Computed example of a mutant assay.
Amino acid sequence: MCGLCGVLQAEHWSDAAGAGDGTVPRQARLRRAALVSAVLAPRRARAADWEGAKLRLTTATGRVELADTLADLWHRADRLVGPLDPLDPELLDRLDGAA
């Protein structure tokens, strides 16, 4: 996806509600934030919805940054808490156990 979407402030594809599953956008956003927080937990960071417009990233040291999209949040998380491997077998096992 090109950067023009950000300039035009178009909705990011990851912010769309479930395809016909009846999920309202706010619920879908809260669910995504909870899943992201589960991935960030080993780094003592968490994500939350902020005013229904952005995602808030909070670190263990109290640093807070706002991200416009899920992709933006991952870039900020990499910078603040270090790179994360979403395919790490231990992470996947932990997430499978939490589901």
Rank of each mutant, 00 (worst) to 15 (best):
P86Y: 03
D88L: 04
V36F: 10
V39R: 13
R31A: 07
L91Q: 02
A33P: 15
A45V: 05
Q9W: 02
L57M: 00
D78T: 10
T61I: 01
D49E: 12
L4T: 13
A28K: 14
L80R: 09
L40Y: 03
A77M: 02
E51S: 15
A67M: 05
R79G: 00
S37E: 00
V39I: 15
G6N: 14
A48H: 11
Q9M: 03
E51W: 13
R63G: 05
V24M: 13
A47F: 01
A47Q: 09
H12K: 07
A38G: 06
R46T: 05
Q9K: 15
A67S: 07
L92F: 09
R46C: 11
A53G: 12
T23V: 13
E11Y: 02
R56F: 00
D78G: 08
A33F: 11
H75G: 06
S14N: 05
A10P: 09
R46Q: 07
L84I: 04
A71L: 14
A71R: 14
R63M: 01
L73I: 03
L84P: 11
A77Y: 02
S37M: 03
T58E: 10
G82C: 03
L4H: 14
A28C: 14
R63Y: 01
G20S: 05
G20P: 11
A19T: 04
W50I: 07
D72G: 14
R46A: 06
G52Q: 02
G82M: 00
L55T: 05
L92E: 03
Q27W: 08
D68W: 08
R76K: 07
